[in-house]
Design a protein around this nucleic acid. Structure first.
Lengths: 335, 335
DNA sequence: GCGCGGCTTGCAAGCGCTTGCAGACTATGC
DNA sequence: GCATAGTCTGCAAGCGCTTGCAAGCCGCGC
């Protein structure tokens, strides 16, 4: 490998001059710079980022701590992050935790050793020890779709409560009065519980009673949606619509409905949440509230860039709007 | 940040002794080691990986160059890679190319600057300039699901031709004689063309003629599967089965079939390829040849580990078996 | 003709860690 | 009691790059 020293030697210059030429420092004679550039090209020089980082204490690496990269939801967000990171000269180290708090801690430590300039954290429920580990990092950390804000950690998220209410209102406007709800885990304070609250709030604002028989707890996976739907459908009067707290459970519900002989949307309307790629694949295509997944990633990375640049954030929290994507699973288009 | 020098100073030792104690070098007096360990703990010492890497010229980082992380196929493989990488102390830098050759080159260069110890390459079609860039890397590179072998690049892959024949034979054994085929891009020498060849070979070994009217080229995306299926179904005699070169196109075909009023599998059987999460989500669940996605990743990383350790590979190519996963989209279970 | 300020370059120290070499010290065997 | 072979530790150089400081150079204005 050719180093700056090699170039310097060849040109009879000092290493520091070569460095300045390469980093277009102002005070370098144009001809000198050209010589250096030319030699670098000719000798196939590649700066050693490690050495540079050691000297400058900037690594231009960020860590991404994530629950599960094989999950479409996280994968989309990751795509957004990687895109803007790269556009700004940052590389991203991928840390897949499997939602395991011990691994989260381990990765946080690892990233610190690797001298990353920033961390995007999108895994698990932020237990106390993880929060502590995050706060004592010497580099900025931003969480996405977590309730980091309550611990003073910059966060980008959506308003789960409001968006769930939006979806529920859509069904109500379509004329539905008896609407089943399949929730996520209710001990999940970020997206599990708030979506239920939004559902409930929308019902109440329309004077529709809340019937616990037709809200069932799931775990965000398809099978749980199937089971929940089965339970919901056996609570007369029969619901005419089902709102599931994510797409996979909505799809599970659709499966169960079809097994029970119900047509979607003719007999019962189904609406999901997230708008991952699953929504378009299923038949009928799923109406769902679309999380701006990609943008969740880009916003988080942009936030992190600001922090790494030493700026204070105008607002510690960025809340992104979702959009209701109307496909076929609820029939009409409503208002 | 506390450094080795700090620890050394506190204990009245030399930095080098501290280093040896921390790296459990044999010749360190047990009490000394214990002192050092204790001080390190107390002072909250975290080794600076950058500095270590610079000194040892081992970064314990690998680069992953990938077409699109938001694609389930790649995301699964990535999960496999990250898992074994982490288990062996390696971190992975994620490089999403969007199948853009210029970006592939850019990332290859970037990774070299970052002094990665190895690269897993899983993007694009390996044009000449990319191959050249790969070969002149100073670190080992392995490709996955690419025809790197022809350029002497270690590769892990499946036997697309044989697996496609397997799927076709399954349909034949089910009694189908007129089987439509939706291919990927035929200029894709890795998975596009070979799957068509396998289809054709299986037909011919059963004495079934190859009818170009019922093989249509798609692009591995759902919409192309829909269009291709429409064309296929209007070539009498009407096919009783359709084999799509991946799951997304198979799902597209199922959509079209249902629009045309055909029942799957009663009227026409559908089989896919890959077994991404889509296959289970769709109704009826898709019978498909399951690529060992996770294992593609783990094998690739294991191969890379061997290479990075300086071992010669027994075989430059690892070929993994697929498994036919029978769900409902082809009806019966066949032989 | 002299001083001053702005360019341009070199010198050297430093980022935090590793490692070959050598010296000191200990235990062992004869 | 001494040589020898191990143990243990320190010294110093080095990984490849950056950067503050100083020195040399130039042209300019007075």
């Amino acid at each position: 490998m050719t180093t700056m020293k090699d170039i310097a030697k060849v040109l009879g210059l000092n290493e520091s001059t070569v460095s300045r030429a390469l980093n277009n420092h102002p005070y370098v004679r144009p001809e000198t710079r050209e010589q250096v550039m030319e030699a670098a090209r000719r000798m196939n020089y590649r700066p050693n980022t490690l050495a540079r980082s050691l000297a400058t204490s900037r690594s231009y690496v960020v860590g991404l701590v994530i629950s599960n990269i094989a999950n479409l939801f996280f994968a989309e967000v990751t795509k957004g992050i990687e895109g803007v990171a790269d556009a700004h000269g940052y590389s991203v180290i991928l840390c897949d935790t499997g939602r395991n708090a011990a691994k989260e801690l381990k990765y946080l430590d690892l990233l610190a050793r690797r001298q990353v300039d920033g961390i995007i954290f999108m895994s698990g429920r932020l237990p106390a020890d993880v929060v502590a580990a995050i706060k004592q990092q010497r580099c900025p950390v931003v969480t996405v779709s977590r309730d980091g804000t309550r611990y003073g950690i910059p966060t980008v998220r959506i308003n789960n409560r409001a968006e769930a209410a939006k979806a529920t209102r859509y069904l109500i406007n379509l004329g539905h009065r008896r609407i089943g709800f399949i929730s996520g885990q209710l001990d999940d304070a970020e997206s599990g519980l708030p979506r239920l609250e939004g559902y409930r709030a929308a019902l109440e604002e329309s004077g529709i009673g809340f019937d616990p028989d037709i809200v069932q707890e799931g775990d965000f996976r398809m099978e749980s949606g199937m089971r929940a739907c089965a339970r919901i459908m056996q609570s007369p009067p029969r619901p005419t619509a089902i709102f599931a707290a994510n797409d996979e459970m909505a799809i599970g519900a659709m499966k169960t409905l079809s097994q029970l002989g119900f047509k979607v949307p003719a007999d019962v309307a189904v609406i999901g949440f997230d708008d991952t790629a699953f929504a378009t694949v299923v038949t009928p295509p799923l109406t769902t509230v679309a999380q701006p997944l990609r943008m969740l990633g880009t916003s988080a990375m942009e936030m992190l860039l600001k922090l790494m640049a030493g700026h204070r954030l105008a607002d510690i929290e960025t809340v992104l709007e979702c959009q209701l994507v109307v496909r076929a699973s609820c029939g009409g288009t409503g208002l």
